[in-house]
Amino acid sequence: METLIVNVLLTLMMLAVVVLARTRNLFSVIVLSGLYSFLMATVMVALDAVDVAMTEAAVGAGISTVLLLGALHLCRSEEAKPAHKPWLPLAVTASAGLLLVYGTWDLPAFSDPEAPIHKHVAPRYLEAGPSETGVPNVVTAVLASYRGFDTLGETTVVFTAGAGIVALLRRRRRKTADKEAP
């Protein structure tokens, strides 16, 4: 049953992306991408990744959409008709896709408890995490403690983006409309 739900949701996501790729109205594209993220969040719930789901809902469906809409508002644009036949991109994506098919063919089946990821490293987090860190949410324990340095890196990434955007979008102190690029 769980597998079925996941697969149906995944199919919906694929549909959303196909429609998105064919849409040229950018507003619709952004709405579709929000929908896609929302579906992704739902899939994550079904996959027991509640923290991921919550974040994806807030970030993918929320912030990303707001940012995209804001940028669209500043750019006021429709997508132009593609000028080239997309043979090269198709070839590139197809070969990458085939490579992935090749690579995932031998991977453990869905929900295989014997998969390596369930046998190594993770068991310790589940068994000892709550007692070692005092945090029952193992995701938080791993995020903040075992792999706390990753999270420092992640915070730094956010900081980098924030400070970078300030550097790019800050206007000059004097309220003139000039820009440093013509």
Partner: peptide
Amino acid sequence: FNLFVFLEISSLSSYVLIALGR
């Protein structure tokens, strides 16, 4: 994975640094 995170730190900052060109 830590490698990926720091790769992104260096990448994002270098995108900004490049964009600051005249």
